Structures are given as C-alpha cells and as structure tokens.
Simulated assay, not measured.
Amino acid sequence: MRNDNEEESRLAPIDTGEPRTSTPHDAPHPPARRMPFAWFWPILAGAFIALVLRILFSGGPGQRFSPMLGSFVYFVPAVCGAVTVYLAERTERRSWSYYLWAPWVATALFVIGTLAVFIEGIICAIVIVPLFAVMGSVGGLAMGIVCRITHWPRQAVYSFALLPLVLGAIEPGLPNPDQFSHTSRTLFIAAPAERVWHSLNEARDIRPSEVSDMWAYRIGVPLPLSGVTVETPEGRVRQVQWEKNVHFDEIVTEWQPNRLLKWRYRYTPDSFPPGALDDHVMIGGQYFDLRDTSYTLTPREGGTDLRIDVSWRLSTRFNWYADRVLQALLGNGSENILRFYKARSEATATAAVMATGAP
C-alpha cells in the first residue's frame, strides 16, 4: 500500500542528470489544466471543517461541547489551519509563509460562516478573531512541519480533528479558574461636586451621540438609555435601561453624597432578552460577571475630579486573553462614561450660571 509521499514521488518527473534527446515523435505537451481558483479550495475546506466542528460545539454553559471551552477556542482554529495546509500540500509544496497566512484567511472565513448561519454573535466574533488567527497559524505550521519531515500527514490531520472532540467531552468536568480584575480612570470636570453627583444619579434620556464612541457599543453591545437612582424598600437602587429591552439593577452599597457612590449588579432571568447579547457569554453568567462599580468625587479648585473603578470576574480556560480584551473594552468604556458625565455636568453648571445671571 503506497503512502502519500510515495504517490507524490511516482507522479513527479524523474531527472537523471543526463541531457535529454528529442525524437521526431516528441511533441510538446500542453500544460495540465487546473481548476479555477484551485489555490482557494484548501482554505475553503479548512473553514468548512471548522464550521462543522462549531456546529457540534453547541452545548450550553458548563455542558459538554460548549463553544466557551478551551478545547474549542484553542483547538478548532488549529484544526482549521491544519486542514488548510494538509490539502494545499497534497497539491504542491508550500512555503513557510503559506503555513502562517493561509490559516488566517481560513479562520476569518470560518468566523464569517458562523455569522452567516446565525450560530455566533457579532460581539464574540469580533473579539475572538485575533486569537483564532494565531491558533490557526499554530495548527498550519504544525501540519506543515509534519508534511515536510514525516510520512503520516493524513494520520496527523485525523488526530488534529479528533482532539477537540475528545477534550470537549472531558473538559466540563474540570473546574474553571477564576480571575478577578479591575480598571480605573479619572477625569477633571469643571463643575461643582453637587452637579456631578446629580448627573450620576439622574442620567435620563441618554442620546446615542453621547456614548457612541465606546468600542463596546460599536461591536454590538446595546446602547444605554437611562440610569436613575430610586428609593425602594430594600434601599437605594440605580435602575438601568438599555436598548433591546435590556434592564438590570445596581444595588447601592456605599452612599456618601457628593463624595462616593458604589454599587453591585443584580440581574434577573429577563434582564437580557434573547439576541440582546451573545447568549453564551451573558453578563452575570458562568464565564463573566461585573462585580461592582464605584465613583469617587474629589472637589478641587474650579471643579471636581471624578474617578471610576470597575471590577469583574472571568472564569474561562483563556482568561489571559479574555482579560486583556476586557481591560481594553472596559477601560475605553470607563473613559467615555466619564466624558459623558463631564459633558452633562458642565452643561448643567453653565445653564445654572446663565440662569442666575452670574458673570
């Protein structure tokens, strides 16, 4: 039984090192015709295999074959890259650079495919693409090495494909590591602390133009509509409304007027209607939770320093990556939130000055 390398050797032209002689019967052979876009088929096949694996990884949080498992996030894009390189090598020897860039294209097509068949949300798709590209290149490079130095590329690609399935059945039985992080930002507001405090507790009728610069909202997180503190039998609660019927409470845990406001988050089963966020990465769920947020007001000459502190929990096999993403998104969000309160507080302070006729 011939293996793949023997088959390639049989088909390759033999060079004896001696000059060739031609005969009157020799005639030039027309070049073999290749399928249109033949270079693209290995990439498309790699993306297709990864899409099939994504369909198989449709389990819910904490279940077998969840798309939030490390066995999916790490190994499925690696399979995508490995299949791409394997099929390309079956046609002709590829360069080392091909082993890196072709899996990038394949994983990008894979992610686009998940969006096209509505099994992935735009938020997760955008966030995960960089990690998928890296893991796709790792798989492509590994397969390229196998194809160059061994006689078992077919067996290797089968092993690549089976690995996420085996691990996807085992991994849910293992505990996820918890990681707790936070971010903070400070901004000077040219308004007295009383005005800033009022803006924090009476954020009504929020316009898209006031917050649309946040990266999180640009990738699909619903825009906020209001955040208002009210008195309830259980104490002070800041009631929050977002677009797409998202709503939740912020339970005030520290209240020092004009000085400090801190809350923890409370969600109900209907806080995030289906489709409002990516359903398998729900805030307050198994993998991610916002813990608390605080605002500290420090009066100074000409206005107030407003500081925001946000903390969260991550519980995934790829906390190292997810935490960097959240640092970027929530850090950017904190900066824009402070600018929102700055604009509102300074506008209110200016209106108050004009109303009193003060110079």
Rank of each mutant, 00 (worst) to 15 (best):
R2M: 14
D4Q: 07
E6G: 05
E7S: 09
D15F: 13
E18I: 11
S22P: 00
P30A: 14
P30M: 12
R33M: 10
R34P: 10
W39R: 12
F40V: 14
W41D: 03
P42H: 02
P42T: 01
A47Y: 15
F48M: 08
L56S: 08
S58M: 11
G59W: 06
Q63P: 06
Q63C: 09
R64Q: 08
F65M: 09
L69M: 15
S71K: 04
V73H: 05
P77M: 09
A78P: 04
V85E: 00
R90N: 03
R90D: 00
R94Q: 15
A102F: 07
V105N: 03
F110Y: 14
V111T: 15
I112M: 13
G113A: 09
L115H: 02
F118N: 07
E120K: 05
I122D: 01
A125G: 04
I126E: 00
V127S: 11
L131W: 13
A133C: 13
V134W: 03
G136Y: 09
V138L: 15
L141S: 07
M143K: 12
M143R: 12
V146K: 04
R148A: 10
T150Q: 03
H151R: 15
H151C: 07
P153S: 03
S159M: 14
L163I: 11
A169L: 15
P172S: 02
L174W: 14
N176Q: 07
T183I: 13
S184D: 07
T186Y: 08
L187A: 10
I189N: 03
A191R: 01
A193C: 11
R195I: 15
S199E: 15
D205R: 04
R207V: 14
E210W: 12
E210Q: 14
E210I: 10
V211A: 12
S212F: 13
D213W: 12
W215P: 02
Y217P: 01
R218E: 09
G220Y: 11
G220W: 10
P222E: 03
P224L: 09
S226P: 01
T232L: 12
T232F: 13
V240L: 15
V240E: 05
K244S: 10
V246L: 13
H247Q: 10
D249C: 06
D249K: 00
E250P: 05
T253L: 09
W255A: 04
Q256T: 05
Q256W: 07
N258Y: 07
W263C: 13
R264W: 00
Y267S: 02
D270N: 14
S294L: 06
R300W: 06
E301I: 12
D305Y: 13
S311Q: 07
S315H: 06
F318W: 06
F318A: 08
N319E: 06
N319H: 05
A322R: 00
D323Q: 09
D323Y: 01
V325M: 14
Q327D: 07
Q327W: 05
E335P: 05
N336L: 14
L338C: 05
R339P: 03
R339Y: 05
Y341F: 15
A343M: 13
A349E: 10
A349Y: 10
A349V: 06
A352I: 02
A355W: 08
T356R: 08
A358T: 12
